[in-house]
Design a protein around this nucleic acid. Structure first.
Lengths: 251, 251
DNA sequence: GTGCATAGAATTGTCGACAATCGATTGTCC
DNA sequence: GGACAATCGATTGTCGACAATTCTATGCAC
């Protein structure tokens, strides 16, 4: 998971809130490869977070503090703080005196999250249209080509990854830290549902066309058109997700 | 999970993620002077949060753990956990080894927050239009009358409070927990800027008309119209805030 | 007076120990 | 056998103590 051409990578949690100035924040998320010996400050939080988001812990799996401390080579204090943070972030559920679990987001909540994402990315697209530069457009077109290549190569996972990058690029252009942080956090919560939309037959082709329209709209620096393009794209994602969930539920 | 005919109250996600009341008419200022016996559970977090949101701690004010522990009659452990939570929530800024401060949201960030709020409330209005009942409409109209009364009585603070209730009511109707939680959190972050928009001359009258149009649109169960009405209302709030900030900056 | 190093105070970070609580298992009575 | 109470092990919550770090102020040379 590297960063191809200095692409902005939106951070999660508090670091992303660093309201710097105008420039697109290119905050590095490099996971500190600290090992057992190194007291990695908040790295217990980062590593635990990554483990959850990557699915190395199952939803609803109990997170016993002592075990985690041993696993990550950290003290129970650090683990405890990490769990509090993750609870506030929505990735973990803590019940008093009963420990913490990986939070299971329900189908309903996944849909709600996606709807919020629509609203936020709509807004971000609008702002991006007002700030986009020719250099940005070039980069976006380039990404579009790569995505096409992935689809043609029958590589849905690679496509999905580029898809994320594409949207993150737009967030960066919009230069709205608050919205970007929120949408990034939401995404990490619902990451478990992502594959369901990508793997629908015919979806990648359609998705590509929608992305192309978004780029066109941005290139024209047209806020309304960009907003509409983004809304239509993501609304279709929501619809696809709805269908996938319905199918999954009545199988 | 939603609140049938009653007043929309605090939207509670989970007891872990619950948010304190935004600003009740009468805020509990009394800090019960430390009865050691009565451990208030997670109330250290709630009370500290309320203290910050209510402005009993100034922005950028240092939050020394030992002091807070004495003030709230809690142990340092509880305070520490509360600070971690509030940091993740965006109300507090913690720097390693350097303690915690009340986070100061810049003018720029306040605007960004408000823009996100526009996007989210737009979406919430749309969903509310699809779920609103006659009972809801009655309640909304009633609130509108009360708000009119407050404006005519020249009571901007009371109007502001009802204003919040009005929007919360719509959130409740929309029945979108994720969006509601987010917008509520954002609001508590930017609460310090709220008065700036309310106190603009002529603003209350205009605001009232905009609210009326929102109610009409909802009563008609028209999603598009409701969304537009909400967007126009909040966009104007953003504009007002922009002007207020500009004026404040060049005074 | 200014710059710089240093000592001391204040504060945060971390650990270990213990109390409090919960869940499950066992034991008892009918 | 099943409902219910007592018990035990596992886990979380909290406290106090101490180490680590930062901040403040003092002393000193120039």
């Amino acid at each position: 998971m590297h960063n191809p051409a200095g692409l902005p990578h939106i951070l999660t949690g508090k670091e992303g809130r660093s309201m710097a100035t105008t420039s697109s924040a290119v905050t590095e998320v490099s996971i500190p490869a600290a090992e057992k010996g190194a007291r990695g400050g908040s790295s217990a939080y980062l590593r635990l977070r990554e483990a959850i988001v990557d699915g190395r812990f199952q939803p609803n799996e109990r997170l016993v503090e002592a075990d985690l401390a041993r696993t990550f080579g950290a003290g129970r204090t650090a683990i405890r703080a990490a769990l509090v943070r993750l609870d506030q972030e929505g990735l973990v559920e803590r019940q008093p005196n009963r420990g913490a679990r990986v939070r299971l987001v329900s189908d309903r909540e996944a849909l709600e999250i996606e709807e919020v994402r629509v609203a936020l990315e709509q807004m971000l697209a609008r702002h991006a249209a007002a700030r986009v530069t020719p250099s940005h457009v070039r980069k976006l077109r380039q990404m579009l080509e790569e995505m096409t290549a992935r689809v043609e190569a029958g590589d849905p996972l690679g496509y999905s990854e580029l898809n994320s990058r594409f949207h993150e690029m737009i967030w960066a252009i919009a230069d709205q830290a608050v919205a970007s942080t929120l949408v990034a956090n939401l995404k990490s919560q619902s990451i478990r549902f992502q594959y369901r939309t990508i793997l629908q037959p015919g979806r990648p082709d359609r998705s590509l066309r929608e992305h192309a329209e978004i780029v066109e709209a941005l290139a024209a620096r047209d806020p309304d058109r960009s907003e509409v393009a983004m809304r239509e794209h993501l609304s279709r994602v929501v619809e696809t997700l709805k269908e996938a969930i319905a199918r999954h539920h009545t199988r």
